[in-house]
């Protein structure tokens, strides 16, 4: 027990502040502030592997390591689609996973955001469209945001998730404004 505690103490807090995504886009901290304001920084993600090679999953799992610390930003991965706000899909939607993906999508309560991660999710990647692969996720369910890469780095994925939520929220408030006016 004491060796565990001493290693915990020696390691210290490892979470990093993520660098700005690009010179024009606002630094990540301020995007996180936007999320804080809008969604109350309580985001639940349901991930579905729709035929990925596992590369994107490895980078998604890295989001839970102490450096990227997704939970510290108030985002967590949930087990049940009924608990989720965001559906994160990896892979080029194999024919065998089409049904499962659609059902998961249907089980997520509104409002929801769908993000396709990786080149495969974006456009089918190197697998493309075939008898066994439906191509991109957008061909099966509506997608709000795509995070390209093979596999995309965790910092990019995190930025993409935050972006997607901000813009979806922006669209929702535009709709609300239009309804009210």
């Amino acid at each position: 027990m004491f060796d565990v505690i001493s290693l915990m103490l020696r390691t210290g807090i490892l979470t990093e502040r993520l660098p700005a995504r690009s010179p024009e886009s606002p630094p990540l901290e301020s995007v996180q502030e936007d999320i804080r304001r809008i969604l109350g920084r309580a985001l639940c993600i349901r991930h579905v592997d729709a035929g990925s090679c596992n590369g994107c999953e490895l980078e998604l799992q890295a989001l839970n390591n102490p450096y990227y610390n997704l939970e510290g930003a108030g985002i967590k991965f949930v087990a049940s689609p009924r608990h989720a706000d965001v559906l994160l899909v990896t892979g080029p939607v194999s024919a065998n996973m089409e049904e499962a993906l659609k059902r998961t999508y249907g089980a997520i309560p509104d409002p929801k955001v769908v993000i396709a991660v990786g080149d495969c999710g974006a456009c089918g990647g190197i697998f493309g469209k075939s008898y066994a692969s439906r191509g991109s996720v957008a061909d099966v369910i509506p997608v709000h945001r795509v995070i390209p890469g093979c596999p995309p780095e965790p910092a990019k994925i995190l930025a993409g998730i935050l972006d997607a939520v901000v813009s979806a929220q922006g669209q929702a408030s535009k709709r609300d404004k239009a309804k009210r006016s």
């Binding site: 109350g40 920084r41 309580a42 102490p66």
Partner: peptide
């Protein structure tokens, strides 16, 4: 777990 913590009021936001 050597990570920075979510804010104390996180459960309320959830």
């Amino acid at each position: 777990q050597n990570r920075s913590a979510p804010p104390l009021l996180q459960p309320y936001r959830m």
